[in-house]
Amino acid sequence: MDEPLPERGMILRTAIGIGLYAMAFGASFGAISVGSGLSLGQTIALSLVMFTGASQFAFVGVAASGGSPFAAVPAALLLGVRNAFYGVPISEILHPRGFARLWTAHFVIDETTAMAVSQATPRGKRYAFWATGLTLFCLWQLGTLAGALVGRAVNPADIGLDAAAPAVFLALLWPMLRRPQARWVALGGALVALALVPITPPGIPVLASAIVALVAGLLPARQPMESIDERDSA
């Protein structure tokens, strides 16, 4: 047996705090999802398998806007792209090989990455990744189920749930807007989407906003990149 990890208690307390927060976030997802017309089973499937908040909200947001549900697929995927980039620091910490990659990958999200990279020791990093990942996964499912049951029992508009999705997106977006370039990209994305609302099928305006990110990202950089551990989690 190894020495007990000194910072174990601290990491676990933080992981539980993040998990409780995720449970509330999951409950709002569950309520919005059934309010958008997804079934209980579809809502739970998204939380279990997709298991990445922003993509799940985007999926139900676009699916609810009418038109083909397949328009929601690329929106969810494009928002999930950032998880692929978290794989770089996580691979350095956990060195997953073979089959271990298959289950490790599922837990590579904003919160687990932020927790893992912010620990001082390699053991602390590994412990933080799994403590956060497993706590958050369980509470995310519980929250989703509770929210979906509440959402089914009441008329979503009566409890103001139509304001929930835009408010959640704004809360996710807010910490990313510290740099001026980010604000311009946000403004550009919103304007492109709004301009396309009357002329394209539902789902296309949100997808088209990705072009703003593509153009801004490929322009020559004027300021250094933020490193991954300085980024706020969403």
């Binding site: 977006l173 990313m176 539902p202 990110a213 990149m225």
Partner: peptide, 27 residues
Amino acid sequence: QRVAQLLPIAMLSALVAVELFDGGRAY
């Protein structure tokens, strides 16, 4: 990396706008 970092910013902002003002091919 830069494109990946900007993607959620453009798309979340677009989602806010669409959630608030989209009435199905009309504002």
